[in-house]
């Protein structure tokens, strides 16, 4: 029996004991009907908080009651993030594992369908913009609309940010608001810090926040600002392992309709993957390299392989 099993057994015993006591009490009073449901009083409601099931390490959680080889099972299970060793209730799932799945899926859905906290771009001092999408639904069903700005919005960008910068930073919500909320506050200063080494910089007020953003939106921004290098930090489509993963899509002088292969991608930026601070230093190094070599994507790779 593992810790989890023992815990739940003790809880069950305690609950049984309490309810038996309550039942005895009730039987004393002749006025109480046996079958009447008992309304919970303040006394009955414990102040205890249940354990957070999302804190359980899935690689260690093991619900098989009588495995042929427990040690061996735990070992093979440790090689994969897949939900193994979760056992079954008949041919269905155990309650614990089905609730954990639902919790992780709920976090993923909330990350997709909710907006980035409107205070975040304000607090950071970013320039606030929006693609031609008017709603989350439009964003999800019309990827083409999430890559475009209206003429008015394009003009606003042009008037507001420093023209022809070496580096144009963009923060786009993408498919995970949670990823932006979790990583942006750390990564922006980390990139700025990292750039100092190379004598490069950008101002936070020149960072463009884009609501309903697809990666392609950076191409139009590249054309509007005439930047050398454009870098978009964007929320990734969430999986169940994490809903907070962010990517950086970086391109040298991007233009609308350019091949996707011209982008350099840094993905998997989150606490359990590449932490924001480390990612910031790495992105700064890439930005410097692209400015020096005037290349990004597969062209940059080819140049690096050629020993430049």
């Amino acid at each position: 029996m593992n810790e989890q099993d023992i815990k739940s057994m003790i809880e069950t015993i305690l609950t049984d004991m309490t309810s038996t006591k309550e039942a005895d009490k009730n039987n004393v009073g002749p006025q109480t009907a046996d079958s009447a449901p008992k309304e919970a009083t303040q006394q009955d409601i414990s102040g205890d908080v249940l354990d957070d099931i999302t804190k359980i390490d899935l690689r260690k959680q093991f619900l098989v009651p009588h495995p042929h080889d427990r040690e061996g099972y735990l070992k093979i299970k440790s090689f994969t993030p897949a939900r193994l060793g979760m056992w079954r209730a008949g041919c269905r799932y155990k309650t614990a594992s089905v609730l954990r799945f639902r919790a992780d899926h709920a976090a993923a859905q909330d990350a997709v369908f909710s907006d980035v906290d409107p205070q975040l771009p304000k607090e950071m001092g970013f320039l606030e913009t929006q693609t031609t999408c008017q709603s989350k639904d439009e964003y999800l069903t019309r990827p083409d609309h999430g890559r475009k700005f209206s003429d008015e919005m394009a003009e606003k960008i042009k008037q507001s940010v420093t023209p022809s910068p070496k580096i144009q930073m963009i923060v786009g919500d993408g498919l995970s608001s949670a990823a932006i909320e979790a990583n942006v506050k750390d990564i922006i200063p980390a990139i700025q810090q990292g750039l100092k080494v190379y004598g490069l910089s950008f101002e936070t007020k020149d960072v463009i926040f884009v609501k309903y953003a697809r990666v392609g939106a950076e191409d139009q921004i590249g054309e509007i600002t005439n930047a050398d290098v454009v870098c978009m930090l964007v929320g990734e489509r969430p999986g169940l392992v994490t809903a907070k993963s962010m990517s950086a899509y970086i391109a040298y002088k991007p233009t609308v309709g350019m091949p996707e292969a011209n982008r350099t991608v840094v993905s998997n930026i989150h606490d359990g993957g590449l932490p924001a601070v480390e990612a910031g230093a790495y992105i700064a190094e890439l930005l410097d390299k692209m400015i020096r070599l005037k290349k990004s994507g597969i062209d940059l790779k080819a140049a690096e392989n050629a020993g430049n």
Partner: peptide, 10 residues
Amino acid sequence: RAGDASIFLN
């Protein structure tokens, strides 16, 4: 035994 991967371990 169904659902027990370790039946394939020695």
